[in-house]
Structure formats: structure tokens, C-alpha cells
Amino acid sequence: MIPIRYQELLEISHQRSLKAEEFVELEKIFCAYPDSRAQWQEDKTMDSLLKQLSVSAPSVDICHRVMHTIQQENMQKCARKQSIFRYLSFFAKVDQPISAIGAAIFLFSLSGVFLINETETFKVDGHNPDYELNSLPGISNSDVPSPDVLQDFAAIIYSAEVEKMIDTDLLSTLASTQ
């Protein structure tokens, strides 16, 4: 079983050349584990081959093609922005911030909705006295008696009641006997 240090030294050798003391360590491992020398050679061969493994480069104009696509996308974005600004300039100047215009539109529509809502509520509830009075059928201002006339309303009612309570037969009998 090759020690862990062997693997560590192999990993170090992938990043940089081994130092003198690390070579000494490696030699000690080779002496202690004779198979490790062949394995080291195999590993280093593998590293060497993997380093040499290379595919052909991409086309030279690949970057140019990407840049061309990016520029086209940027131009499309600019055109889209300009069309939005043109639309907004119908309401305000182009250099004004869009947020301010948006806020103004929002407040305007909010107040409109509030006003419409208030009017509708008002019509349904009918709290306006003038509206209520005019909406009652068959009653006009001329039919309503003045408050002065109605001041003795209770006394008049009472006197009418008193008149009903008088026993006219008894009074006539008394008058005939006299």
C-alpha cells in the first residue's frame, strides 16, 4: 500500500517542480515500496501525455462574430428604448425621469377613480337633503305648512279630541228640562 504522501507529492508535481527535500522524500518512498517507482513513472507519463493532448483552435473570427452579435443586440435595445421615449414624450419632455411621469399618471388615475367612486356612492345612499326632497313624489315646497302654523299642533289635536268626548245628548236633555 503506497502511502498518502506519494499522492500528495504527485499533486504537488502537477502544480510545480518538486523541491530537493521532496525528491528525497520520494526516494525514501521508492525504497520502502519498490512498486511505487514504476507507478510514479506511469503517472508522470500520463501527465506528460495529457499536457500534450490538445485540440485544434477555434476559428480566428469567432470573437469578431460574437462582437457583431453583441453590437446588433445593443442597437436593437437602443431602438426599443427610443421608441418608448418617443411614446412618453407625447405626455412630457424626453429628458424628464420616467418614474416622475409614471407617478403623475398613477396619481391622476387614482384621483379619477376616487372621484367616480364618490359620485356613485352619493347617488346610491342619497344623503343630500335637496336630492332627497326633490326625489319624493307629489310633494313640493308649496304644500308644506310653515313651522308657525304647526306650533300649536298638539293643542289643536287635543281640542279635537275633547270635542269628540262631549255628550251632546245629555246637554240637550238638561237644556229641555230647564
Binding site: S54, P58, I62, C63
Partner: peptide, 23 residues
């Protein structure tokens, strides 16, 4: 461009597709 092309080629195993993918 070279390392990514190499990686794409190793995964796709087609040099033309690898170039398209690089883009």
C-alpha cells in the same frame, strides 16, 4: 476561447458544434 473550445470539444466531440457552443 481556446480552453473553453477544448472543453466543449471534449464534451460534444464535434469540432463544429464546439465552435457554435463557444459562441
Amino acid at each position: 476561447k481556446n480552453p473553453i473550445y477544448q472543453m466543449a470539444y471534449r464534451m460534444i466531440l464535434d469540432p463544429f458544434e464546439a465552435e457554435d457552443l463557444l459562441q
